[in-house]
């Protein structure tokens, strides 16, 4: 049933080349996971999601499709406009050890933590940044 409601989204993910795509339904919630080839594909999927379920209000879908970036590759800071904090450890309770500007391209060092990626700026500042504000550079 939910697979039908979100069929357009699942189809879009398949067509756009989302890899490791997993679609599962459990206790009235649909879970869609996968690796998006780019930030643009992720944007497109969220647009479809918002169209099917305005304001994401139904609470019946968990869409976790992230743009994949390889360790050692370059990633871009995709904050709205502000600087991105680089912290000593993975968590907002950790002290800030550096900043990366909006749109700045930095190096992804390690993805050992899902939410917090270890990054290094061109100035050599190294620390953890919130992964949702980072996108692979194609």
């Amino acid at each position: 049933m939910l697979q039908e409601k979100y069929k357009e989204l699942i189809d879009a993910a398949t067509t756009a080349g989302v890899s490791n795509l997993q679609v599962r339904e459990q206790d009235g919630v649909l879970y869609i996971d996968g690796d998006s080839p780019s930030g643009a594909v992720k944007d497109q999927l969220w647009n479809v999601y918002n169209k099917i379920d305005p304001d994401f209000a139904s609470g019946d879908l968990i869409l976790n499709v992230q743009a994949t970036a390889d360790e050692g590759s370059k990633v871009k800071v995709v904050t709205k406009s502000s600087n991105l904090n680089i912290r000593k450890g993975p968590g907002t309770d950790q002290p800030i050890v550096g900043k990366a500007a909006h749109d700045e391209v930095i190096t992804l060092v390690s993805k050992s933590n899902d939410q917090w990626w270890l990054v290094r700026t061109a100035d050599g500042e190294e620390g953890y940044a919130y992964a949702q504000y980072l996108e692979p550079v194609i």
């Binding site: 206790d27 009235g28 919630v29 969220w46 918002n50 304001d55 994401f56 209000a57 609470g59 019946d60 968990i62 869409l63 976790n64 992230q66 709205k80 899902d114 939410q115 919130y130 992964a131 949702q132």
Partner: peptide, 20 residues
């Protein structure tokens, strides 16, 4: 800003999100 928030929340892998 809703979408940015939801993207972040859904990436934490919860059972579901109640945003009523």
């Amino acid at each position: 800003e809703l979408r940015t928030l939801m993207e972040k929340l859904q990436a934490t892998k919860p059972k579901s999100i109640d945003s009523k």
